[in-house]
């Protein structure tokens, strides 16, 4: 298993190299000159030129790329153009916010999708099935910025059951963290819950017709063991694939949700950095996003082995 993980990690190196090239070319593609920005509006061309020279912006592209990449692999993502803090420090400070938001959102979506998918998948055409199908269509159709705002209006402002904005680290207060995380996580996870429910329902309908489900019944197992143990483990295989894809798009969703709920996470940082043209920070955010996506895919691949022994590495 360890070997499998290492192999997979090695296989991502070419991918990361390509991504690093793309990230680096952001600097070249984005209009505007960071040297101008840094020098300020009143700077003379000589001052701008001096800054450009100091930043190494006059060197050939390849030289700049290699120099930048050398720093990146050593954990040096550069310095924020505005706060002068190292990019990596800022990212690591904000990462827990986004991670706890994303992980909670995934857990909420699974907590909805697994029971809903099993119940509807074992009783296709029932009332519960129709209610859930309509519900998941709504869940898919509702944009998360609208849902977030409505939840804030209703549950935070009108009823004051939850704080409207902000974030408390879990290390400071678990209840405070939960109160702050539950609305944004629900907002973020609802669409994923809808998609996962549909996926699981379809897979369950299919699996319940399989011969091994009949065998499990012929053994005299209670229906619950037949569906939750025998059928679910097989039906979970396609769901895990979708979960990986959903996790990545959900990380994208944190950009909007963190804005709405005023959470100091990576998403908010990304938006702020784009507005201030803080290129090293934008690069750092993108690299971090790619690394997280690669890790999520790896996790998905590893969990395949659990659900489907046929793909388990020998």
């Amino acid at each position: 298993m360890l070997r499998f993980v290492l192999q997979r990690l090695l296989a991502t190196i070419p991918l990361l190299l390509i991504v690093s090239l793309l990230v680096f070319s952001l600097v070249l593609l984005i209009p505007g000159d960071p040297a101008f920005q840094l020098a300020g509006e009143d700077a003379t061309p000589e001052e701008v030129e001096a800054i450009r020279e100091a930043m190494g912006l006059n060197d050939p592209v390849m030289v700049r790329y290699v120099r930048w990449l050398g720093g990146v692999v050593q954990g040096d993502l550069g310095t924020s153009l505005f706060s002068d803090q190292p990019v990596l420090d800022v990212l690591l400070e904000r990462l827990p916010v986004t991670l706890s938001l994303a992980v909670t959102a995934i857990l909420i979506s699974l907590a909805i999708a697994i029971p809903a998918g099993i119940i509807t998948g074992t009783r296709p055409g029932s009332l519960a099935d129709r209610v859930v199908t309509v519900g998941s269509s709504v869940g898919l159709a509702v944009p998360n910025f609208w849902l977030g705002l409505m939840l804030v209006l209703l549950l935070a402002i009108r009823h004051a059951w939850f704080p409207a904005t902000g974030y408390v680290p879990i290390s400071d207060s678990v209840s405070g963290w939960w109160a702050h995380i539950v609305l944004p996580a629900f907002t973020l996870g609802l669409a994923a819950a809808a998609i996962l429910t549909r996926q699981l329902r379809g897979a369950m309908v299919d699996v319940m017709d399989q011969d091994y489900v009949r065998t499990a019944r012929a053994k005299g197992l209670p229906e619950r063991a037949v569906t939750v143990k025998h059928a679910f483990k097989n039906a979970a295989i396609p769901m895990v694939t979708i979960l990986g894809v959903q996790t990545n798009s959900l990380l994208g969703g944190t950009i909007i949700v963190e804005q709405i709920f005023g959470m100091p996470g990576i998403g908010q940082l990304a938006v702020a950095s784009v507005f201030t043209r803080d290129l090293p920070m934008i690069q750092g955010v993108v690299i971090m996003a790619v690394v997280v996506a690669v890790l999520v895919n790896l996790l998905v691949d590893v969990s395949y082995g659990y659900f489907n022994p046929k793909v388990r590495p020998k």
Binding site: A218, G220, H230, F307
Partner: peptide, 24 residues
Amino acid sequence: RQVRGNDIAMVFQESMTSLNPAFT
């Protein structure tokens, strides 16, 4: 359910598909 698998057991035609691929 107490009868199934205990008093009366069954062997099916397709051994390929009648065993659950996800369990030993």
